[in-house]
C-alpha cells in the first residue's frame, strides 16, 4: 500500500524516543495518521509543527496498518500562527473539529473550507468568518447539514433571517416573526457566499447557530465538550469594534 498526497499537519504525538505519530488532513484520504521515523529529531520537529503543509508518502504492508510516513515540507505556517492568539486558537478549533470525523474518510468539500480558513487565520475577523463557514460545512459532512436554501414554512428564498432549532431549516422574516424569540438568527453571510469578512455581530450569531447544532447533534451524544479555544474566539469577536 502506498500513496502520495499534499496534507496539512493537525498534530503530532510522541512515539518511543525518536519517532512521532503524525496526524495529517488530506483531500483524498481525510484525517490520516502514520508513523514518522526520527520524527522527534531537532530537524524534523521544525517541519512537523501543526499547521505546516507537507507532501506525504504513506506506506504500509496492509491497508489497516498504521503505516509509515515520509514527509517533505512545502509551506511553513506554524511560525506565523504562533504570532497571534486568534490564529493559534483558530487552528486548535479546526483540528479539534476535524477529530470529530472518522479516520481515513475523505471529505474533499470540508478540505476546501479548511484550507480557506487556514489562509485567513492571521486576520481575526476574516478568520472567524471562515471558521463559522467551516463549522457549517462540518455539520453537513457529519450528516447534520442545515437547510438554508428556502423558508421551511413558505418556501420563500429571500429574506431568510432565522433558523428553526427543531428542524435546522431556514425561516423567512415574515413567517418567523411570530416565533422570533424561539428561532436562531441566521446571519446573511452563512446563507449565501459573500466576499470579505462579515460584521462581528453576524459572526457572533453564526457561532451561536453552529455551536447550537454541533452541541446538540455531535458533542452531547458523544459526551464531548466543545474545544475551549472556540469560546475564546467567540469572546474575541465580542470585543471587536462593529
Amino acid at each position: 500500500m502506498q500513496w502520495t498526497e499534499d496534507g496539512v499537519i493537525l498534530g503530532t504525538r510522541r512515539h518511543g524516543e525518536t519517532s512521532a505519530i503524525l496526524e495529517l488532513f488530506t483531500e483524498a484520504h481525510g484525517r490520516h495518521l502514520g508513523l514518522v521515523r526520527g520524527g522527534r529529531s531537532r530537524r524534523s520537529q521544525v517541519a512537523l509543527q501543526p499547521g505546516n503543509s507537507v507532501i506525504a508518502t504513506w506506506r504500509a504492508r496492509l491497508d489497516e496498518h498504521l503505516g509509515v510516513y515520509s514527509v517533505e515540507p512545502t509551506t511553513a505556517r506554524a511560525a506565523s500562527l504562533m504570532d497571534s492568539a486568534h490564529a493559534l486558537y483558530g487552528f486548535a478549533v479546526l483540528a479539534a473539529h476535524l477529530r470529530l470525523l472518522p479516520e481515513r474518510d475523505p471529505h474533499p468539500e470540508l478540505f476546501r473550507y479548511f484550507m480557506a480558513t487556514l489562509e485567513t487565520l492571521h486576520d481575526p475577523r476574516a478568520g472567524a468568518t471562515a471558521l463559522a463557514r467551516f463549522e457549517l460545512a462540518l455539520l453537513a459532512d457529519l450528516g447534520f447539514g442545515l437547510d438554508l436554501g428556502e423558508c421551511a414554512a413558505t418556501g420563500a428564498t429571500q429574506e431568510l433571517v432565522w433558523v428553526s432549532p427543531k428542524s435546522g431549516r431556514a425561516v423567512s422574516r415574515s413567517a418567523g416573526r411570530p416565533y422570533r424569540d424561539r428561532l436562531l438568527p441566521l446571519p446573511g453571510f452563512l446563507a449565501m457566499e459573500t466576499a470579505g469578512p462579515a460584521a462581528p455581530s453576524d459572526i457572533a450569531e453564526a457561532f451561536t447557530l453552529t455551536g447550537f447544532f454541533l452541541s446538540r447533534h455531535v458533542h452531547v451524544p458523544r459526551q464531548l465538550t466543545m474545544p475551549p479555544e472556540r469560546q475564546r474566539i467567540v469572546d474575541m469577536v465580542g470585543r471587536m469594534a462593529p
Binding site: 520537529q45 509543527q49 501543526p50 499547521g51 506554524a78 511560525a79 500562527l81 504562533m82 492568539a85 493559534l88 486558537y89 487552528f91 486548535a92 479555544e229 475564546r232
Partner: peptide, 29 residues
C-alpha cells in the same frame, strides 16, 4: 517551547494574567 502547542499555552496563560499587575514577556524567536 517555540512550538504550536507551547505558544498556544503561552497565549492562554497570558490571557489569564491580564488582570494581574505584572509585565508579561516571552522569549525571542
Amino acid at each position: 517551547n517555540a512550538t504550536v502547542e507551547g505558544q498556544t499555552t503561552a497565549h492562554y496563560v497570558t490571557e489569564l494574567l491580564a488582570d494581574a499587575d505584572v509585565t508579561v514577556t516571552r522569549l525571542a524567536h
